Computed example of a mutant assay.
Amino acid sequence: MQHARTRRPAASHWLAALAFLLCPALALAQVKIGLVLSLTGPAASLGIPARDTAAMFPTEIAGQKVQYIVLDDASDTTQAVQDTKKLIDEDHVDAIIGSSITPNTLAMLDVIAAGQTPTISLASSAKIIEPVDEKRRWMFKTPQTDAMMAGAIVEHAVARNVKTLAYIGQADALGETFYAEVAKAAQQHGIRIVANERFNRTDPSVTGQVLKIVAANPDAVVVGAAGTPAALPPRALKERGYKGLIYHNHGVGNRDFLRVCGADCNGTFLPASPVLVAAQLPEDYPGRRLALDYISRYEARYGALSVSAFGAYTWDAGLLLQGAIPVALKSAAPGTPAFRAALRDALESTRGLGDTNGVVNMSATDHLGLDAHARVMVEIRDGKWIYQPPH
């Protein structure tokens, strides 16, 4: 889509032109939304459903044309920063959605703060938005935090009399931050961590790390990884005859992961977005109706069983912007610093907004706005997610 050209009014219509200039809401400039997504590389299974969901976004909001500019960060932090700079400095976007993964989003923080551009991350770490300081005041997110999900894992493990725990995670910001939350929750519940291992997203094998874990004989293992690379640890654990519980990070909520992991993931658990099991939830569960609506729209376009949590997180980011853009338009025109600031303020003032994860109530200190209803525990069985009601 080409950039909109400013219309020059005829001299006989100077009064109309003056009214146009004095009323930002009537401006013809498009709202521009940039998306930094992991469309290639190890995290592609997260970014592709996000891109496909963005293709379903409205092209007009509150009477204003909206342009979406999608860039691939290739699952790489340096590329994510370059993409962000391009969107801000060259494309002059009003807001950004992305990145798909924690390391990339954290790398984008300085650029976003310097450019004062409101951004909605699709990644998990609480460090993306906490604390809401001068840098993070421009950053929001839609996925549940790692703290919320680590807590769900440990609560589930406690109910199954787990006393010892091992951790294997990616050797990046996601793996480190998720481990910190798992360790904190485990300590609070008297669970001892007996092994702590790392692997790279591009590693072909985790045999060495798994041998150390099996030797420690934990009651349960937590895998802190996202996308298809997260299939390596459960596969290696099953090959070594491990019989304990296996938990995943919520970064595996897509069917590409189920396909790659196959039977090795049968009987494993993960805390997940309600969208994965929306049809199995009680009728009055928060977010169920909107989750089913999103699933219906997505699968009508991309095929049955194609939905993933990462597409849903993107849909929720779109809902946030659809609520905030009309508010910002009342005070400033798109393409201006004033509009970006007004959009940031409108996002932070979001209250009672329903999305696929529940109800969003943001504040000056909470740029996620979700409660515990936004997480559910599911079991993987024969390539399906099965809802596990709380005991």
Score class of each variant (00 low, 15 high):
362 M>F: 11
249 N>M: 05
360 V>L: 11
193 I>N: 08
38 S>M: 04
220 A>R: 01
61 I>N: 12
4 A>N: 12
128 I>T: 06
129 I>T: 15
84 T>S: 03
298 Y>S: 06
239 E>L: 14
369 G>R: 07
291 A>G: 13
304 A>F: 11
378 V>A: 12
154 V>L: 15
19 A>Q: 13
157 A>R: 09
339 F>I: 08
212 K>S: 13
132 V>H: 12
50 A>H: 01
196 N>D: 13
28 L>H: 14
204 P>L: 09
356 T>G: 11
277 V>I: 13
117 T>R: 06
84 T>D: 01
180 A>G: 04
381 R>N: 11
240 R>S: 11
82 Q>A: 13
320 L>S: 09
47 G>I: 00
14 W>V: 14
251 G>S: 03
234 P>G: 07
241 G>K: 12
111 V>C: 01
77 T>Q: 04
180 A>F: 02
69 I>F: 10
346 A>L: 11
344 R>I: 04
381 R>Q: 13
44 A>Q: 08
327 V>T: 14
234 P>W: 07
144 Q>L: 09
328 A>W: 03
113 A>F: 11
206 V>G: 01
228 T>D: 10
333 A>F: 10
137 R>A: 09
271 P>M: 02
369 G>K: 07
230 A>H: 07
289 R>D: 12
278 A>R: 01
47 G>W: 02
184 K>A: 15
179 Y>L: 12
149 M>Q: 12
72 D>H: 06
112 I>M: 06
329 L>S: 06
71 L>F: 10
347 L>S: 04
189 H>Q: 12
352 G>Q: 13
218 P>T: 01
242 Y>L: 01
384 K>W: 01
337 P>Y: 13
108 M>T: 01
122 L>R: 00
8 R>S: 06
336 T>Q: 07
384 K>R: 14
215 A>G: 03
165 L>R: 06
242 Y>K: 02
381 R>W: 05
168 I>L: 09
24 P>I: 02
161 N>F: 02
155 E>M: 02
77 T>P: 00
64 Q>E: 11
298 Y>Q: 05
218 P>M: 02
345 D>Q: 15
250 H>V: 01
8 R>W: 05
116 Q>A: 13
377 M>G: 00
215 A>E: 13
242 Y>W: 03
370 L>V: 05
210 V>S: 05
3 H>K: 15
144 Q>H: 05
128 I>N: 01
250 H>N: 10
80 A>T: 00
53 T>Q: 11
345 D>A: 15
354 G>K: 10
292 L>S: 06
336 T>F: 10
210 V>G: 10
336 T>W: 07
51 R>G: 02
288 R>Q: 11
366 D>V: 03
350 T>M: 12
317 A>L: 08
121 S>Y: 09
122 L>E: 01
271 P>I: 01
315 W>A: 10
38 S>C: 08
240 R>V: 05
377 M>P: 05
69 I>R: 04
87 L>Q: 02
228 T>F: 03
116 Q>D: 08
235 R>W: 04
92 H>S: 13
30 Q>W: 06
72 D>P: 07
54 A>M: 13
226 A>S: 15
244 G>C: 09
142 T>L: 11
207 T>E: 15
15 L>T: 06
336 T>Y: 07
121 S>E: 10
317 A>W: 08
82 Q>C: 00
80 A>G: 06
83 D>K: 00
181 E>V: 00
76 D>M: 03
161 N>K: 15
381 R>T: 11
252 V>I: 15
1 M>H: 14
296 S>H: 12
50 A>I: 00
338 A>E: 15
